[in-house]
Design a protein around this nucleic acid. Sequence first.
DNA 1: TTATTTTCGATAGTAATACTATTATATTTG
DNA 2: CAAATATAATAGTATTACTATCGAAAATAA
Lengths: 227, 227
Amino acid sequence: MHSLITNIKIQISDKIFVKDPETSVLGKKIIKESIILIDEIGFDNFTFKKLGAKINSNESSIYRYFENKHKLLLYLSSWYWSWIEYKLFFATTNVDDSFEKLKKAITVVTEKIEDDLATEHINESVLNKIVITEFTKTLHTKEVDEENKEGFFLIYKRVITRLVELITEVNPEYQYARSLASSIIEGALHQHFLRDHLKTITNCNEEISPTAFYLNLILTLLKKNRS
Amino acid sequence: MHSLITNIKIQISDKIFVKDPETSVLGKKIIKESIILIDEIGFDNFTFKKLGAKINSNESSIYRYFENKHKLLLYLSSWYWSWIEYKLFFATTNVDDSFEKLKKAITVVTEKIEDDLATEHINESVLNKIVITEFTKTLHTKEVDEENKEGFFLIYKRVITRLVELITEVNPEYQYARSLASSIIEGALHQHFLRDHLKTITNCNEEISPTAFYLNLILTLLKKNRS
DNA sequence: TTATTTTCGATAGTAATACTATTATATTTG
DNA sequence: CAAATATAATAGTATTACTATCGAAAATAA
């Protein structure tokens, strides 16, 4: 299992970083502490200088790993979606019924993430929090098209594509599998955000999870052709 | 009709601006040209200095209207949602059938916006484009909770609440009206964005609109209790 | 074990950003 | 026409977002 995690890490495009942070102690420290610092002060207020101070290292040393903070966020996001892809794989293997499989997949992509202690230098729970508030910022830039061509969003798109496959397996007649998949992934993050900050425009709270909302949604939406 | 537009404008919280841009020629110029400039170079690259150069005015003069560019974006977003609220009102009045009403409402909040020539200093079509790419940035800051308390997102939340009412009218048994409404509003912007930039993870294109996707969704999701 | 490479920290420096303050000049309004 | 208000121009500060250089430390290879 540990080797599989390592494999997932390798999938992150080497165009995102200057030097692979997994290859050194400082690199791993940058990843670990940047997650915590971004969560604390928000991505907009986050700077390499502040991170340097936090890890008792120098601003210029961090630049040796990442061109800028945007690339660092891209790296963290890719890592996150890789992690989700990995969980998706394990949640759906050996499940025969296609609707059961889809339900498991929906659960993985919409539920609140707990820390996995197997990855020492990454706290998945905190990473999940920063993905909820900051992920859209990786997409919403003037450089999306170039960065998309460079493959920076490949893992994210692969997770969505996997969900599309599962939806199509459940109901091959459904016309909007891709839009449904992408809106579930995006929407789940959004519902988590609303639950934390704009409670009046969501039904999600301590009792009702975004997962419940989306499980109910796909049940109603795709049930026609269920066996 | 023109006076109604004026009324809508007045609804924008005066905590968002230092001086109401509607009250002067320079103010209106700031609004008009900032929409165009943000669309051109993106919000991240947008500065008051650049805007000043574009409108042959001074950076410091713009600061007399808005504290910073974040507040300006909040203003533009509020204006946008006000505009949507106004369109929502007209689209649903004198429609008796509740499902027809909901369909009209969904259309208003998910369709591509055309410019309305009645508002000289605002190009709604371009404003729609910047809302698609930049709106989430108004929410995803460390200051959301304070700004929410100050009422900066009131109009946005009111649009969602209106949609919740219409959903509940169609199907009072449906458990997730608020989450559905908020995910439609957010998701429609997202689908527009994907159509423009990440085409492989959406079904939306020139033929299929986000509106079609969401009309199909609510039809299937809420039809049980339709009359 | 020594030599070589690489990694890292420290310092310095630049251009741009995000403002604030002041003052003089327009422009509006009473 | 006078008074009030709005705007433009200039200057200045702190922070950000980097780049470049250099020497020391650490890792690795011969």
